[in-house]
């Protein structure tokens, strides 16, 4: 009992000492807080600067034309309307046809889906052969494929046009698919080869002993482990092909054009006043698919790009 009482006074100096440590810590805490504030302010300012064009595009596309010509370019829409989007999608005139972007959007899908699937598939098999079924001269073949990544678009325009006309695919959607697949294989092979090189060779050997063959090993063992790199390859190819303008404008014409070519026609070929709201809406319609792909699969993209960099 006496002991218990004797311990009582001891807590009373404690708050005092506690206060001392508090005053000790407060400036440090404040400094950290100021630093944090600075970081956030900088980040928000940067993000705002970056998002400014998007803001202008979105608000402009939602304004009637009179408001754009009458008032500020940057302000919030006073008379909110979706007309520009409607027109851009289904009524805007492209050349002599006033169909809007819709058929060209479909064209782009018809080009991009097979081209992405084919180039990713072929890249995967190439990478698989170059790492797990090495043959004499494999490194040379890989080196030559890598060389393809550095070929500028312009350099292959004329030979490609000649090839397409020789095989009867000039000006068609299948022709453009072929162009994108052959140009994309260099990149997809590089992705898959670098990913597969990190998979232990013992996996293939174990599967061989188990009785699996070339395609069985590819399907059942290699591909299921490669989801991250498949996503990387698909995103890369999708954005490249969807956003491509040069190949589209060079190798297709009229009704077979991809959306980027149609967008160019809407924006550059106008009679009378420039219809900024429709141009903005059209540009955003053309950009939405790539944006969606990034939002849906973006985290796999980062994961896939860093895969193999860290063991585990």
């Amino acid at each position: 009992m006496a002991e218990a009482i004797s311990t009582l006074p001891s807590p009373s100096p404690a708050p005092g000492s506690g206060r001392v440590t508090k005053t000790d810590e407060t400036p440090r805490y404040n400094r950290a807080w100021i630093g944090r504030l600075f970081i956030y302010a900088t980040l928000i300012a940067m993000a705002a600067a970056y998002l400014m064009p998007l803001w202008v595009m979105v608000t402009t596309s939602l304004k009637p034309l009179e408001e754009i010509y009458g008032g500020s370019f940057i302000g919030f829409p006073q008379n909110f309307t979706l007309d520009a989007w409607r027109v851009a999608w289904s009524q805007a005139c492209i050349g002599t046809e006033c169909t809007g972007l819709k058929p060209y959007f479909v064209n782009s899908l018809l080009i991009v889906i097979p081209a992405v699937v084919l180039s990713t598939g072929i890249g995967a098999i190439n990478g698989y052969i170059l790492t797990k079924w090495r043959f004499p001269g494999a490194n040379l073949v890989f080196g030559l494929l890598l060389f393809g990544c550095f070929l500028p678009y312009q350099a292959i325009l004329i030979p490609m046009a000649r090839t397409l006309s020789l095989i009867g695919l000039a000006g068609s959607i299948p022709g453009l698919i072929l162009v994108h697949v052959s140009y994309g294989i260099c990149f997809t092979t590089l992705f898959f080869r670098n990913y597969f090189v990190t998979l232990p060779d013992d996996l293939t050997k174990a599967a061989l002993v188990d009785g699996a063959g070339f395609f069985r090993i590819f399907w059942s063992i290699i591909l299921p482990t490669s989801i991250p790199i498949i996503v990387v390859s698909c995103i890369w190819q999708f954005t490249q092909i969807w956003n491509d303008f040069l190949f589209g404008v060079s190798f297709t014409s009229g009704a077979h054009s991809p959306i980027t070519v149609a967008l160019n026609n809407i924006v550059n070929v106008t009679t009378g006043r420039k219809q900024y709201n429709i141009d903005m809406a059209a540009a955003m319609i053309a950009g939405i698919p790539t944006l969606l792909v990034y939002i849906v699969a973006g985290r796999y993209f980062v994961r896939g790009l860093t895969a193999g960099a860290v063991k585990g």
Binding site: D202, K205, A206
Partner: peptide, 8 residues
Amino acid sequence: FQSYALYP
């Protein structure tokens, strides 16, 4: 195998 080589 030394690395076990289990199918991941």
